[in-house]
């Protein structure tokens, strides 16, 4: 039986990337992977992913100033937070699978 926690996590990932949104699916995917966003959105999204306590009011207002709406920013910030956390999850699960495999008791 699949792990219900991983199933619930994947459902969230699928929704924010592939469901309807105010930001384009392409922009959401870029925010999720923290890759190939234009300035100043790239600064905001990189902070969300890697140093969220450094995010300032200015980072959000700068992103608004170049045409992003608040609803688009809401979605892109969520995509960035879920994206980075998903990479951590995958890293942890892969290390666990490798450890279990080397013990010869992979489940």
């Amino acid at each position: 039986m699949p792990d219900q926690k991983q199933v619930a996590h994947q459902a969230l990932v699928d929704r924010i990337l592939n469901g309807e949104g105010r930001a384009s699916a392409e922009q959401r995917a870029r925010a999720f992977s923290n890759h190939e966003l234009s300035s100043p959105l790239d600064t905001l999204i990189d902070k969300v992913a890697n140093r969220p306590t450094d995010v300032t009011e200015f980072d959000l207002s700068a992103a608004r100033g170049t045409g992003s709406t608040e609803d688009e920013l809401f979605e892109l910030v969520i995509c960035a937070a879920v994206g980075q956390s998903t990479r951590l999850y995958e890293t942890g699960l892969a290390a666990l699978a490798e450890a279990e495999g080397s013990h010869g008791n992979a489940s």
Partner: peptide, 26 residues
């Protein structure tokens, strides 16, 4: 146990998401 580590990684993931949103949205 392997299952405990898997379960702990799920908690870790949920709070890495929430922490980022808490600090970004203020």
């Amino acid at each position: 146990s392997p299952q405990q580590l898997e379960d702990a990684l799920a908690v870790c993931t949920a709070f890495n998401i929430t922490n980022r949103l808490a600090d970004t949205f203020g």
